[in-house]
Write a protein that binds this DNA or RNA. Structure first.
Lengths: 289, 289
DNA sequence: GAAATACTGGAATTATTATTTCATTCCGGC
DNA sequence: GCCGGAATGAAATAATAATTCCAGTATTTC
């Protein structure tokens, strides 16, 4: 019968590819035709239907199924899932890996596993940001901030560390800034100083600190430009911010990293610093390249 | 009827996303539920079937179709094709971008270059840490901290954000901790509370804040165990700390990242949390596996 | 050169999946 | 508190797509 050569079925795309290349010589003509097509147009296989693929590869649907069975799959569907998995992996290769990294699963080398978990989560966050962050939004945000007289920084709880680094960096760059601290209960006064000629960077992630949201709303209502860093389009901040960044931080052991939020904040700070310098060079503040 | 608001149907993912966000407020509950799910799990929409997606989003398949129709599509299938198209494009554009990133990192768009710089610097820092961090030191540090009655956290200026996140994390884990703040000038009092049964995490990088060094020295002289995170063997902290980690953060544009310091801090916090839990399980606090 | 075997094409069949329909619930206005 | 309309859930139905089957054709083998 047909259960001759093919011992084990390929589990991922690389194995499948290797398997195809290995038997290339011995494949029947039409099967080989599909094999070539599949390696050349993996996306088609991933998304198409058996019929549509058959047409564009110039074969019959039944041949497609024979091809899948030749490789050890039980049908076209399971072959296709390998092609789909490949696309998914491309997009979020760390997602799966992270999920398998459970904090306390092995007693051996537990602490090192924890550290690895955070390092991996951080890397993942950075990767996601470098793929998804919108350049135009970044440019516009820096433009807005560069024109501001004072940059207010609003963040609490988990986001507070970012705020404090931002304040530190802006200070170093001699950009006037003001953190809105909750400690002494001075928030209302501080907020009342802000005018539309200033700007606010507000950072908040789910679960959003109610005080942050309230303060941000108050500022927005008084037309102070708001730049938000938050975690989803459904964040309340996205509603009333002039510009907002969506940052997806990976988490591990219940704590999200701050790696990409930090990187973005630093980029904002340095970008503002550069814009201000360029603006001064041209004799006016707030100029944009 | 239902063909009211939605004039044109979104042709690509960005338009679709914008369309969803625009109507966010006015969507019925279940539709909004899917809207959120779709933006959070675009891959699921791209690959799943109406039934499978409905289940993981917690709604009925019919709701999915209503969602698609709300957006102007004639059914789930045409909505799905937008999500699939996105995957295709993402895939090719990501690869292209990677290639061009190597080539033209010279004078490319300024602000984006800054962000890339910080992302790259962060990644580099993480890589260095995962190669060089000594596992035994990590284990011993967690052991010391897990036995401490109160963990004091000492950091200023650039290291302050790390301290605040550490305090946040330890708080969440219900580990008693105390930041040594410089604001109100209360440092001396706080420090005087610390005993050899406590422990201190001190974080400082060159140029070391003199106050941090002084406080740390004072604590060390009173035999409070010191865990230091610093940047070199020549750091004054290395001299009187019980244990110390050498962390090499890459820098960009004059600012060092905090990515690996953050990761290490989180690992310490979670490690202590786990050790405490394990210890309690065995009937004694501070036990070590 | 004939028989057996493997391969291919096309249509029928079966399975799966999207969509529609209808009864019920929920919500806001009178 | 009742009514009307929108929203929802569940199941029936329609559409679509995968798979199988069989007849015909090429290919190999003896």
């Amino acid at each position: 019968m047909s259960e001759t050569a093919v011992a084990e079925l390929p589990r991922d795309f690389d194995e499948l590819r290797a398997s195809i290349l290995a038997q290339r010589e011995s494949l029947p003509k039409r099967i080989a035709q599909i094999a070539a097509y599949a390696l050349d147009n993996p996306d088609e296989i991933a998304f198409g239907t058996a019929a549509s693929i058959a047409i564009s590869a110039g074969v019959q649907p039944s041949t497609l199924i024979r091809f899948a069975q030749h490789l050890g799959f039980d049908g076209f569907t399971s072959l296709q899932s390998v092609f789909r998995e490949r696309l998914r992996e491309r997009n979020s290769s760390y997602e799966e890996r992270l999920n398998t990294l459970r904090v306390g699963d092995g007693t051996a080398a537990g602490n090192h596993r924890i550290l690895d978990g955070f390092l991996t989560a951080s890397r993942k966050s950075l990767d996601v940001m470098s793929r998804t962050l919108d350049e135009a939004t970044l440019d516009r945000a820096i433009d807005v901030l560069a024109r501001a007289e004072t940059i207010y920084i609003l963040a609490r709880r988990r986001s507070y560390p970012v705020a404090s680094y931002l304040a530190y960096a802006l200070g170093k760059l001699e950009v006037r800034n003001q953190m809105i601290e909750s400690a002494a209960g001075l928030d209302p006064e501080m907020i009342s100083f802000a005018t539309p000629r200033d700007a606010v960077i507000v950072i908040s992630f789910s679960p959003y600190a109610p005080a942050t949201i309230e303060d941000a709303r108050g500022l927005a209502e008084r037309d102070v430009p708001l730049i938000a860093i938050t975690d989803s389009a459904f964040s309340p901040l996205a509603g009333f911010a002039k510009l907002w960044f969506e940052v997806a931080e990976a988490d591990f052991g219940g704590f999200r990293t701050l790696a990409s939020t930090m990187a973005l904040s630093m980029a904002l700070a340095v970008g503002v610093g550069e814009a201000r310098r360029a603006g001064r060079g041209k004799g006016r503040r707030g100029g944009v390249a």
